[in-house]
Amino acid sequence: MIKTKFNYDYYLRKNTLPHIWCPGCGDGIILKALLRAIHKCGYSKDEVVITSGIGCASRLPGYVDFNTIHTTHGRALTFAIGMKMYKPKLKVITISGDGDALAIGGNHFIHAARRNIDMTLIVFNNYTYGMTGGQYSPTQPLDSFATTTPFGSIEPPFDVCSLAQAAGATWVGRSTSYHAVQLEKFMVGALTHPGFSVLDVITNCHISYGRRNKMKSPVEMIKYQKEKAVPARSAENMSPEELAGRFKTGVLFETKDKPEFCGEYHKKLELLKTK
């Protein structure tokens, strides 16, 4: 348990900076919220493991002083599961982009949720494959533009939170890189939840996504996040027409009724011991 005053420097690997993210990118805001949240939870640096896949967001682990694993594209959750099952006391967090988590890693996403293993997945959801030049991702809104949807996207996007809940995750929330204070609060909620928690963070890639969709500056994209976010409670009283093109924020689902996989497995081991 850390009782010291919060200090970003304590958690950053300063010799690995500057980071690769473009000026104005939302990923840094999420990184800072994550460090504040980890500090609030009181985890020691040695007990935290962060795995990530491939993409801009997945470079995050390199910059932070924990046990960090920058894995393969889409597969970060599989490494996380192996680590958690072998060392249940560790606090395992996975960082993933929308393409990483939901396209190439979609299978691992739904199965981690189904198992309800005590880990946290944070999806940096910027609707695009930023690192490879702005191709369309599985969360890109209909009719929007990407380098591979020059005539507008006709593929319906995934709703990360609905998918996570349907697949069995027991804590599901959404925030944005605009709502930095809320983001930190939700991260604490996700990290301390005893089950699989998924936090969908809408963030901005003005370079690869915004420029093609009339939001070429970070300010315009941050405004988009502010204006399109609808707190879940307010959304209850809104019509589908009013909600069109907007997204719900908040802790959207939470239950402690479903057994947690890692704990259940190790309980079974204890039972076998006594036999």
Binding site: T51, N67, I69, T71, T72, R75, L77, T78, F79, A80, I81, G82, M83, K84, M85, Y86, K87, L90, H108
Partner: peptide, 9 residues
């Protein structure tokens, strides 16, 4: 992937 995660542990 899980094997490698565990091996890193």
């Amino acid at each position: 992937g899980a094997v490698l995660g565990a091996a890193l542990g």
